[in-house]
């Protein structure tokens, strides 16, 4: 009896329900939900969004309202987060700021990484003149004084949607990651699974999307989570100098900027926006870690549980498929 027949025989007895949907998307979702911390982070982000957008309706104060009875008073039942020097309600301000910062961070961070991944991987994979042109472009962007440029450009965008501002922020922050992505692509490009895909007739964009980028997912995710924080802070830096989000609108950055002189005297002016900012960044990092583990088949967290499950199924199926523990030779 041949090996094939033997295997076939076993197979027919153990013919499991068809796993048509064993695709990557679903698998990653399943692995992500196994990660408690990641799930927790996701919930926190959702709650923050809800609070930022629905929170202001819980109190009767409006963004532009000024309470002439309360100038710079601490948290109370009337003003949950206290008031500012001009008698504005800090809770409403913080929530409004959180709205802006959440959107800026969560769009700007991933956008930065996306540009970096796109430029870096295309340069690395394509090679030749395209590679040289893109690397030159990256280098030029690197030496540009981005802060100055943003300052010069910002009057042009005045009155236009502030979302454009997010794009600008991302446009000046992707270069270093792009160089890293490019060098990783160069090494991945010669790996056999990429060659295999190429010889199967898979197109270059698909190879980049399905093989090159997922294999540097750890880097990209960490970079994206860091970029979220960097974008939020970058926006505050610019807003502090008067570019970006302008009064009466606020962002967490402008609030922190305004409140930082009063850390010791009127701590609520600083603490609440800063606390929200830390919460956002922490939650994003948790989600990032969870995603990274879900994407990485060798990640300890996702695997430890997978192993246990696998052992159970193995006992029922054929004995030939336990993972071999290989001793370092």
């Amino acid at each position: 009896m041949s090996a094939l027949d033997a295997a076939k025989e076993i197979d027919e007895t153990a013919l499991a329900p068809i796993v048509g949907g064993g695709g990557r998307g679903r698998l990653i979702a399943r692995r992500f939900t196994r990660n408690r911390l990641g799930l927790f982070g996701l919930i926190v982000i959702v709650l923050l969004f809800l609070a930022a957008y629905l929170g202001p309706y819980l109190t009767h104060w409006q963004l532009t309202d000024i309470d002439f009875d309360n100038f710079q008073t601490g948290p109370s039942s009337a003003h949950w987060f206290g008031t500012t020097q001009t008698g504005q309600d800090m809770f409403v301000l913080t929530m409004r700021g959180a709205q802006k910062s959440l959107v800026i961070g969560l769009i700007g961070g991933p956008l930065t990484t996306a540009i970096a991944a796109l430029v870096g991987s295309v340069a690395g994979y394509a090679g030749g003149w395209l590679d040289r042109a893109l690397v030159w472009f990256i280098d030029v962007m690197l030496v540009m004084p981005s802060f100055l440029l943003l300052a010069i450009l910002s009057p042009t965008f005045k009155g236009k949607t502030w979302l454009l501002f997010v794009v600008l922020l991302a446009a000046f922050a992707w270069m270093i990651t792009a160089r890293i992505v490019r060098s990783l692509t160069l090494s991945l490009k010669s790996r056999e699974f990429v060659l295999a895909a190429k010889y199967m007739g898979v197109s270059a964009p698909r190879i980049i999307l399905r093989h090159i980028l997922p294999n540097m997912a750890s880097l990209l995710i960490i970079d994206a989570t860091i970029s979220v924080a960097v974008t939020i802070l970058g926006e505050s830096g610019l807003s502090y100098f008067g570019f970006g989000i302008q009064p009466p609108d606020v962002s967490l950055g402008t609030l922190i900027g305004n409140g930082q002189d009063a850390v010791n005297t009127y701590p609520w002016l600083f603490m609440f926006p800063a606390g929200i900012l830390i919460l956002i960044i922490l939650a994003v990092n948790f989600v990032g870690d969870g995603l990274r583990d879900a994407l990485d088949p060798n990640a300890a967290g996702a695997k430890a549980k997978a192993k246990r499950k696998q052992r159970q199924t193995d006992e029922e199926s054929l004995p030939g498929d336990t993972t071999v523990v290989e001793i370092a030779q």
């Binding site: 796993v19 064993g22 695709g23 990557r24 698998l27 790996r191 056999e192 699974f193 295999a196 895909a197 199967m200 898979v202 399905r210 093989h211 997922p214 294999n215 997912a217 994407l295 990485d296 088949p297 060798n298």
Partner: peptide, 15 residues
């Protein structure tokens, strides 16, 4: 090296 470590077997074969 020839199998993408990030893909489950189904996707590798479906590619």
């Amino acid at each position: 090296a020839a199998l993408d470590p990030r893909l489950p077997v189904f996707d590798i074969l479906a590619e």
